[in-house]
Structures are given as C-alpha cells and as structure tokens.
Design a protein around this nucleic acid. Structure first.
Lengths: 106, 106
DNA sequence: TCAATCCTTGGCTATTATGCCAAATGGCCA
DNA sequence: TGGCCATTTGGCATAATAGCCAAGGATTGA
C-alpha cells in the first residue's frame, strides 16, 4: 500500500483506538452530558483513579477530549461531540448481530 | 458501574475495537467500493495472506463484514456500511488536532 | 488423480495495552 | 508552613494483539 494511504489509515486508527475501550466509552458517554473532573469520573467507573487518569490521557492525546484546570481539579469535556455518532452505527451492528444469532439458534 | 451499563460498553467496545487497526480500516475502505476476495485484499495491502485472513476474521466476528464463498474463493463485503460514517468524524478530530498543533508551534 | 490455487488455523515471538500500587506533583486552606 | 485533596507519573505484572512461517483443508482444472 502507498505510504500516503498508509499514513492516513494509521492516523484514523489512532483516533478510533482511543475509543476502543469500555471504560473510555463510559467516560465519553458521561462527558456528553456535562464536563466532569477526574474524581467524579473515578467514582462513576469504580476503578483506581490512576487508571481513570490514564484513560483520560489517551482520550486527550487523540483529541477527543480536552481538559481545563479549576483549582486543584481538572475538568474534562468532549472536544468533538460528533464521536457520539459512532454509537448509532454500533447499535445497528449489534442489532444485526442479535438477529443473526437468533436465526442461528433456531 | 452497574453490570448492565458495563455490558453495554463492553459490547460497543468490541465492535469499535474491530475497526481500530489501520489494515482493517483499509479493508473496510476497499469493501465500501466493492466486494473483494482475500487474495485481492492481500495484494492491495501487501502483507501475508494469513495476516489479512485474520483481520477479516476479526471484522466478521464483530459483524462489520460478512463473507460468501464462490468456489475456492471467499468474498467479503460490508454488512453495515454505516461504519463509513465514522470517518467523517475522525477527519473532524484530525483537523482540530492539526489546528491545535499549528497554534502550539507558533 | 495430481497439482496448483485459495484460504484458514496453529504456533511462536515481539510489541502494546491495561490496571493496580506507590510515589511525586500541584493547589488550597488552616 | 504543614497537611490535605486532586491528579499524574513510574513501575511492574499480566494479558491481549499483530505478524510471520508452516501446515492443513477445500476446490478447481488438467
């Protein structure tokens, strides 16, 4: 494959990969409602705060979220709310899969 | 997090993860034009055929593509063309990132 | 039937991702 | 200043991915 194409797919994959984790999807979902600080997200998710912080680092590095400090707290918010569009397609795939599995079970 | 929510995010992540690889994005892109057999995709990508076959297995397991045999050949096609919608959002993120990087460099 | 083609699977290694704990950093307030 | 709270970073162990080669089916065609 041409280097040019390859670079494009690499760049795209980097962003999509940032979304390819349940915890990060939960974070994005929550941020679609309102900005949240790490502490709030940690409570919601129920993992170690360092774990949540690292997931946020991944999302931030990919450009999906951005942060803003307010005193000792760091608030995160969606930078590209269009990522929420992903979900409708994903639901479609899930529905098709469910139908397929139903048919197979019959 | 509730088990119900967790299961939903897990399911979503499984599908998104299937797209989170440059080679698989290249495959999806190609299949958006027309169905292709493994051999054709292998030529296009320039990796070992076993590698391409495994990527196709991942895409198929997630429900993004489906296959149909024609003699000795296995043709793959998109099952949910809506996955192409992902790209426009990804491009938006990439554009925002580029602008941010420009601003930082100045 | 034999050989060639197409594809998948097994096996192995190297790389990357994930999650926790512990430690370090930074801000706030008494 | 000292101590607390919020967050990030380092370190490490474990698990998941990716890619190649080699081997195993399956199908076509001579």
């Amino acid at each position: 494959m041409e280097a040019r194409k390859q670079a494009l797919y690499d760049a795209r994959a980097r962003i999509i990969k940032a979304l390819a984790h349940p915890t990060r999807l939960a974070i994005v979902d929550e941020l679609s409602r309102r900005r949240r600080c790490v502490h709030e997200l940690t409570e919601m998710i129920g993992a170690d705060m360092s774990t949540v912080s690292k997931h946020l680092t991944v999302l931030k590095a990919s450009g999906i979220v951005e942060d803003s400090k307010r005193g000792a707290q760091v608030y995160y918010q969606l930078r590209c709310p269009c990522v929420l569009n992903f979900f409708s397609c994903v639901e479609t795939v899930m529905k098709l899969n469910a139908e397929r599995d139903m048919a197979l079970a019959r």
